[in-house]
C-alpha cells in the first residue's frame, strides 16, 4: 500500500514537471497570451486524460479484459457520423449554422442517446452479455462508418478540411469555453463513482464471486457503463476520438502498479495518461512542429502496443 502511494506521488511530480516544461518551454518575450493558451491546453489535456483513464480502467474491469477500450462501443462512430453530416449539409457555412457550443452539446446528446439505446436493448434481451454488447456496438460502428465514408466521398474537398479539423483529435483548436462544462461532467463522474470504487475491486474477481459477496452486480455494471458513456462522450466531443489511448495507458498502469485496488489504479491511470499526452503534445509542437495531429500519433503508438499485447501473452 505504502509503495503505491509513493509511486503515485512520483507520478504527480513527473506530471507537474512535464506540465511546467510544456507551459514554459520557449515562451516568446510577449508571453502573456501564449501562456494563457498553453494553460488552457494543459487543462484540456488533464480533462481528457482523467476521462480516458477513468473510463478505460472501469471498462476493463467490467469486461474482465485488459485489451479492450470503451471507444469500441461505437460512440466515436456516432460522433464521426454526426460531424460528417453537419459538414455535408452546411459545407463551408458550418460554423455560422452551428457554433462550437451547440456542436459540443449535440454531440454529447447523440452519443449518450446511442449508449442509452444500446444498453437498454441489450440488457432487456440478454441479461448482461457484455461481449455481445461490444460486438453490436462495433457492428453499428462499422455501419455508421460506411455511411460516414460515403458522405465523405461526396463532400467537397475544401469542406473536407473543415471536417478533418474535427474528426482528428487535437488540443490546438479547442474552444476554451467548453472546458468548464467538460470539467463539470468529469468532476460529477468522479464524485458519484469514487465511493463505489470498492465495488469495482470485488467485480474484478468475476461476476459469480461478486454476486456471492453481496454485490448487486447488474445494477453496478449498468451504473458504471453510464459513467463510462458520459466520460467518453465528453472527451470525444471535446477533442475528437482517440481510440487506442485507453489500452496503452491502462496496461502501463497495470505494469507499474501491481494492484487490484481501483482507488489506486484509477488515479494512477489518469496521471499516466496526462504524462503521455503532455509528452506527446510536446513532441508534436516542438519536434514535429505541428506536422501531425496528436491523435494520429497516439493511435499509431497505441495500436502497435495493442498488437504487441495480443501477440505477447497467451492469456487474454
Amino acid at each position: 500500500m505504502k509503495i503505491h502511494i509513493k509511486k503515485i506521488i512520483l507520478l504527480v511530480l513527473v506530471a507537474i514537471a512535464l506540465c511546467a516544461l510544456f507551459l514554459s518551454y520557449d515562451l516568446p518575450s510577449n508571453w502573456g497570451y501564449s501562456f494563457e493558451r498553453r494553460s488552457y491546453k494543459v487543462l484540456a489535456i488533464i480533462i481528457v486524460s482523467c476521462s480516458v483513464g477513468y473510463a478505460s480502467i472501469v471498462f476493463q474491469t467490467l469486461t474482465h479484459n485488459r485489451i479492450l477500450t470503451p471507444s469500441i462501443m461505437g460512440f466515436e462512430a456516432v460522433y464521426l457520423l454526426f460531424q460528417t453530416i453537419i459538414v455535408f449539409l452546411y459545407g463551408d457555412k458550418t460554423f455560422t449554422v452551428i457554433n462550437d457550443k451547440e456542436n459540443f452539446f449535440l454531440s454529447i446528446i447523440f452519443m449518450l442517446g446511442f449508449a442509452f439505446i444500446l444498453f437498454k436493448f441489450i440488457f432487456k434481451k440478454e441479461k448482461n452479455n457484455l461481449y455481445l454488447l461490444l460486438l453490436i456496438g462495433l457492428v453499428l460502428g462499422t455501419l455508421f462508418h460506411t455511411i460516414t465514408s460515403f458522405l465523405q466521398l461526396i463532400i467537397d474537398p475544401n469542406d473536407f478540411l473543415i471536417l478533418q479539423g474535427s474528426i482528428y483529435a487535437s488540443f490546438n483548436k479547442i474552444n476554451y469555453h467548453l472546458l468548464w462544462y467538460a470539467l463539470t461532467v468529469i468532476i460529477i463522474c468522479f464524485a458519484v463513482g469514487f465511493r463505489q470504487f470498492k465495488y469495482l475491486d470485488v467485480i474484478s474477481l468475476g461476476k459469480e464471486h461478486a454476486i456471492n459477496l453481496g454485490i448487486n452486480y447488474f445494477k453496478k455494471v449498468r451504473f458504471y457503463l453510464f459513467i463510462i458513456g458520459a466520460l467518453v462522450a465528453v472527451s470525444t466531443a471535446l477533442v475528437g476520438p482517440i481510440i487506442f489511448l485507453g489500452i496503452l495507458v491502462t496496461n502501463l498502469t497495470y505494469e507499474i502498479f501491481k494492484s487490484y485496488k481501483h482507488a489506486i489504479l484509477i488515479p494512477a491511470c489518469c496521471l499516466i495518461c496526462i504524462i503521455s499526452i503532455v509528452g506527446a503534445q510536446f513532441l508534436v509542437e516542438h519536434v514535429f512542429s505541428f506536422n501531425i495531429v496528436i491523435s494520429i500519433i497516439i493511435n499509431f503508438i497505441g495500436g502497435l502496443y495493442f498488437m504487441y499485447l495480443l501477440l505477447k501473452t497467451k492469456k487474454v
Partner: peptide
C-alpha cells in the same frame, strides 16, 4: 457459493 475452479488474471 464457490463455483468450479476459477482462474483469476489478477495480481
Amino acid at each position: 457459493i464457490l463455483k468450479q475452479m476459477n482462474h483469476l488474471d489478477l495480481k
